[in-house]
Amino acid sequence: MTYAVETRNLSKLFGKTKALSEVSIALQENKIYGLLGRNGAGKSTLLKLLTGQLFPTTGDIKLFGETPYENAGALSKVCIVRETGTFLKDMKARDALKVTSSYYPNWDQGLADRLVKAFKLDLKKNYKSLSLGMKSQLGIIVGLASRAPLTIFDEPYIGLDAPGRQLFYDLLLEEYGEKPRTFILSTHLIDEVANLFEEVIILEQGSVKLIEETDKIKERAFFVSGPQGEVERRVRGKQVIYRDTLGKTAVAGVYDQLTPEERSVLETAGLEVSPMPLQKLFIYLTDERGEGDV
């Protein structure tokens, strides 16, 4: 099977600092992936490695079955939009779009024009004189109109206000429905985009902490709350990643398999079982003080 992205034992050192360590992932075609991690977890390093901008210290990378290094064919299938570095500051927005469009064989100029109108973007302005929100809009237009089989958004929409971000999410889903392709969204705004992800990759200190389908995460990540003793007794043997108590009431955050029978037993025992939002799961898994080893 050919994957959109496949890495094997990928590691990257900057001097003595280990930015990535033994990362092995296989991302399928036509899926939306969420790449999550705290600052410095190695997200941007991973994305730069995937796009051939950095060299791995060890390990292999394949994009659609080919190595990206000096491979124009493989690289033309990838569009990466980053918060910085996607555009030159002295370039007019119109020129930026023109130059960018020529690198992507599937570029849809009609879509680009529609998005420019939707965002009311002034293309005559220099990139550096655009507001933060407009810079984000330009990045979104490039990412969506590129129609690259692998489109990566590395936090480029951080400058958008809430309605702007919602517009982006709607456009992304619309585009995905019309022309399915592989999207990787690297973000800190997890709650907002959690519903978009089909699969989630969580990086922590350069290593993959979790890679799982969102539906499975929803099944496996849950809170159990109720009388402290009962909660402790019922979650024993499960992977508990969070604990809290308030008086005699306790809450346990669990990341583990929960069969319908087990759920029924918990509820019969008077315990409340509630879903754990993805953002909470991310926080517990990456909290250095916590118990979040999976």
């Binding site: 690289l75 996607t86 555009f87």
Partner: peptide, 16 residues
């Protein structure tokens, strides 16, 4: 200096 990272980010190769 400015063009190199921009060019690689666009998907260009070093040879190009």
């Amino acid at each position: 200096w400015e063009a190199f990272p921009y060019y690689l980010n666009l998907g260009g190769t070093r040879r190009e």
